[in-house]
Amino acid sequence: MRDAELTEQITVVHQQSRGTYGAPRVHAVLKHEGAGCGRRRVARLMRQAGQPGTGPRSEAHGWRVGHTDFSILTEARYHADVPQPPPVPAPARGCSRPSAPPISLV
Rank of each mutant, 00 (worst) to 15 (best):
G38T: 05
V26P: 03
G55E: 05
T54M: 14
R41H: 14
A80L: 10
Y78M: 11
H27I: 00
V42K: 07
L105W: 09
P102A: 13
P91M: 07
Q15M: 12
W63L: 15
S104V: 06
E75R: 06
M1V: 03
R64P: 03
F70N: 15
Q84P: 00
V88Q: 13
P102T: 01
A49H: 04
T54A: 15
P87Y: 03
Q84G: 11
R39W: 08
A43Y: 01
V13K: 03
S104T: 02
G19E: 04
C37D: 04
A60H: 13
L45N: 09
V82C: 07
H67K: 15
S58D: 03
D81P: 04
V13I: 12
Q51L: 15
H14L: 02
S58F: 10
M46F: 03
E75K: 11
E33Y: 04
R44P: 03
I72H: 09
G66Q: 05
V88A: 15
A23R: 01
R44T: 00
T7K: 12
H79E: 10
S104R: 13
M1Q: 12
H32R: 15
G62P: 08
V12W: 02
R97E: 12
L30G: 06
A80K: 09
T20M: 15
R44W: 01
E8G: 13
L73K: 11
P83M: 05
P86A: 11
A76G: 10
P89W: 03
P101C: 08
G19C: 09
C95Q: 14
E59H: 14
P56T: 01
S58I: 08
G34R: 01
R18L: 13
E59A: 15
T68H: 13
V65T: 09
C37T: 10
A4V: 07
I103T: 08
H79P: 00
H61P: 05
V82F: 08
D81W: 01
R44S: 08
A23I: 00
H79D: 06
I10E: 06
G94T: 00
Y78L: 12
G50D: 02
Y21S: 02
R44N: 02
A35Q: 10
A4C: 05
V42P: 04
I72P: 03
R93Y: 09
T68L: 14
A4G: 12
L105N: 08
R41N: 09
